[in-house]
């Protein structure tokens, strides 16, 4: 469903991505990990065109992301994205956050959008908070609302950019639970995360990135059992042995 082919990206002289190629099939869950500054967030943001790239191609269900003729808003509306810092809209209530894009982008009427939004809010366990504003919720709750907001668009795939990195430790699980549930329901997911427990539980494949390149792209058992590259081995031993 998502095909990434030899993608390279530069910030001026500095190359942040080098010949990255991988793919995510329908219903597959792929976890992207690696040290900070390795380009994982940049890569996932290229998938829905939030970050431009200078060479290579990315296609989502056959639509080329880098093609200037592509209607990017239309493509993005079909791919959900969840951010490290939640990025709920602070001036809008929870229900308004859930309804805005449904109404303005998909053209659903308000009642329809509201029904969908409340159903998803219930699913992430936050129905009681519908009338509140983002600032009144904890980080974990905000992130669950952000997931519901993305799901309200009926996405064909979901991108997660370090969804639990900005959370207090005791809130990480409530967000991961929602993600695990989603994975089990067959959602196509690409997740940048350091949560190796999550990767073990639901990932099909794990991609390891370092210095802008994809160093390892393997089935999860293979990755955790015997990573081929030394860099991935070193990374794993650092984050797993605590």
């Amino acid at each position: 469903m998502i095909e990434i082919n030899k993608v390279s990206k530069w910030y001026g002289e500095f190359q942040v991505l080098t010949d990255c190629s991988t793919s995510v099939a329908k219903g597959e869950v792929v976890v992207v990990c690696g040290p900070s500054g390795s380009g994982k967030s940049t890569l996932i943001k290229c998938v829905n065109g939030l970050e431009p790239f200078q060479s290579g191609t990315i296609s989502v269900e056959g639509t080329s992301v880098g093609d200037p003729k592509t209607n990017l808003p239309k493509l993005r509306a079909r791919v959900g994205m969840v951010f490290q810092n939640f990025e709920l809209f602070p001036h809008l209530s929870i229900t308004e956050n859930l309804c805005l894009a449904q109404e303005k982008v998909l053209g659903r009427n308000h009642d329809e959008a509201m029904e969908k939004g409340l159903k998803l809010l219930d699913r992430v366990g936050l129905k009681a908070h519908a009338g509140k504003f983002p600032g009144q919720l904890s980080g974990g709750q905000q992130q669950r609302v952000a997931i519901a907001r993305a799901l309200a668009m009926d996405p064909i795939a979901m991108l997660f950019d370090e969804p639990t990195s900005a959370l207090d430790p005791e809130m990480v699980n409530e967000v991961l639970d929602v993600m695990v549930q989603l994975a089990k329901e067959g959602m196509t997911m690409m997740c940048v995360t350091h949560e190796m427990g999550f990767a073990r539980k639901v990932a099909n494949r794990v991609i390891f990135m370092d210095r802008g390149s994809i160093v390892e792209d393997a089935h999860k058992d293979e990755f955790f059992g015997q990573p081929r590259s030394e860099r991935a081995q070193a990374f794993l031993s650092k984050i797993l042995h605590h």
Binding site: N48, K74, R76, A77, G80, F83, L100, A101, L106, R149
Partner: peptide, 9 residues
Amino acid sequence: GAAQALGLT
């Protein structure tokens, strides 16, 4: 980014 990721122009 969040607004555009939702498909808003």
